[in-house]
Simulated assay, not measured.
Amino acid sequence: MNFLKLIRYQNLLLLAFMQLIFRYGFFKYQNIPLALADWQYNLLVLSTVLIAAGGYVINNIFDQDTDLINNPKNVIVGASISETHAYNIYLALTSIGVAMGFYLSNVIEKPGFAAIFILIAATLYLYATSLKQMMLIGNIVVALLLSFSVIIVGIFDLFPATTSENQQQMGIFFSMLLDFAIFAFIINLLREITKDIEDFEGDHNQGMTTFPIFVGEEKATKIVFALSFIPLILVIYYINRYLLDLLFVTIYLLLFVCGPLLVFILKIWNAKSKQQFHFLSFLLKLILFFGILSVAVISFNMKYND
């Protein structure tokens, strides 16, 4: 159980779910060629998960002092798992994940794409060691990495199967991936800042310069409040522009994405306590989950309409 906490398995499950839902909840029903066999695609998911798990481990290693203040009950490194053992786990997870990436890059005959996995692993290491301490940079990096885990699906499963004959069709699906990646980026950026507000005390005691520390806790809260209208407006625009003919999808998004976003907006305005910000962070994770699940709802609704 300590190992699962160390790698933050809940976040990894969400990451895996996000990638699996695009293939098995949508692309498989669209009558388009896919570059990877099922087991190879699952290997892509596993590779992404392992590299992300390594990122969580190295982050926990460098966050020991801060976690003692912010989350004393959840401290793993230095308590139930030694720092040396944690480093070994990090190296194993990251190495295996990158090696899988090398293999998959050769499968699609794009060996240069292996650099993507190296770059992701290196960025996660830099985040834990230095980028995290740079105001907003760390937040943006984490949000970008999550959104890129959506885009990588297109890079490895759609792009290699794209030909001059199906280029327009594949372009539509790649564009859809980009839309979801943008949504994931915005929601996760809001969540990262919200978590920084939640961890204000511990980060301040460690001399970190997070966004809430720089502008002040109250001002940061109001900025998150203002920014949270962006995904709400974008989802409503997206429904109006593309999805009004899909009744189930429209109802689903209004109830399970727009609804929780409205709850977040209402609650963030008056949020003060650590517990309130913790709940709001969890709420954003739920919004991300339901947002990604909408891919399968779109697929179902399209099939139902046919």
Rank of each mutant, 00 (worst) to 15 (best):
V224Y: 01
I230M: 10
G202D: 06
L246F: 14
L280Y: 00
L247H: 08
L234M: 13
N270P: 03
E217L: 13
L283S: 06
Y238V: 09
V257A: 07
F214L: 14
R241P: 03
F279S: 02
F256C: 08
Q276K: 11
L266H: 11
E201R: 09
F225M: 02
T221N: 15
V215A: 02
T250E: 13
G202R: 02
Q206D: 12
A226N: 03
F282P: 01
D245C: 02
T250R: 10
P212M: 00
I223F: 08
A226P: 02
I268S: 01
K219Q: 13
N240H: 08
N240V: 11
I287W: 08
A271W: 04
T210S: 15
L234D: 13
V215K: 03
A271M: 01
L243E: 10
L253N: 12
Y238S: 13
L286V: 01
F289Y: 13
F200M: 04
P231D: 13
R241H: 11
L284V: 05
I239S: 10
A220K: 14
G291V: 02
D199N: 11
I236F: 13
F211R: 01
Q206Y: 01
I292T: 08
S228M: 04
V257R: 04
F289L: 15
G207V: 03
L284K: 03
L232T: 11
F229S: 03
I287P: 11
F277W: 08
S228Q: 09
G291S: 09
G202T: 05
A226C: 04
K267F: 10
V224G: 02
G207A: 08
L255N: 05
L244D: 08
Q206S: 12
S281D: 06
T210N: 12
Q206N: 14
I233F: 13
E201K: 10
A220S: 15
E198T: 05
L286T: 09
T221V: 07
H278L: 15
L284H: 03
S281P: 04
L284R: 07
F211W: 07
Y242K: 11
A271T: 02
N240C: 04
I230L: 15
L255G: 07
T250D: 05
D199R: 09
Q276H: 13
I268Y: 02
K219T: 09
F225W: 14
L253G: 07
T209P: 00
N240W: 11
H204K: 15
K219A: 13
P212G: 04
L283R: 10
P260C: 04
L284S: 04
D203G: 06
N205H: 09
Y242P: 03
L286F: 08
N205E: 12
Q206H: 04
H278E: 10
R241F: 11
Y238N: 14
D203F: 07
F229K: 10
P260S: 04
L283N: 06
Q276M: 08
F256S: 11
G291F: 02
A271Q: 01
L244Q: 14
I265W: 01
L288V: 09
L247M: 05
Y252T: 07
Q276I: 02
L261P: 01
L254D: 01
L288M: 15
F279G: 01
Q275A: 15
L246C: 06
L246R: 15
I251N: 04
F200Q: 04
V263I: 08
L283P: 05
